[in-house]
């Protein structure tokens, strides 16, 4: 069991390293055409949307739990710049809800 788990972990390591490293070594330094430059510029914002939904709604059996956390984060990030405080306020509100419920 133990040896094969080690093998599993090494296997997982290899397949996570490949997509992370290959672009740095196989792509040229040549800039892309403007259209694709813009598409790459869009990716961070598109991926943030996909990372938040639906994942955030699944942290609890009750979908509202995650949704409230996200709403708090949206309001908080509208007013404060530092991301740490956004995280703290969202966690704090949900902790209070967990305790009260």
């Amino acid at each position: 069991m133990s040896d094969s788990v080690l093998l599993l972990i090494v296997g997982m390591s290899v397949v996570t390293l490949l997509p992370r490293l290959l672009p740095f070594f196989i792509l040229s330094d040549k800039p892309l055409p403007p259209f694709w430059q813009n598409v790459l510029g869009n990716i961070p914002y598109a991926i943030l949307g996909a990372l938040v939904f639906p994942g955030s709604l699944k942290i609890h059996e009750d979908m509202w739990y995650g949704l409230i956390g996200i709403l708090v984060a949206i309001v908080a990030s509208w007013f404060v710049k530092n991301v740490i405080w956004v995280v703290v306020s969202s966690v704090a509100v949900l902790t209070i809800i967990s305790v009260v419920w």
Binding site: V52, I59, S77, V87, V91, S98
Partner: peptide, 18 residues
Amino acid sequence: ESTGIALYAMFVGLLIPA
């Protein structure tokens, strides 16, 4: 339970200013 929201809140915090 509540800390499960932490990374999602961080994503929101990065997205909203933009």
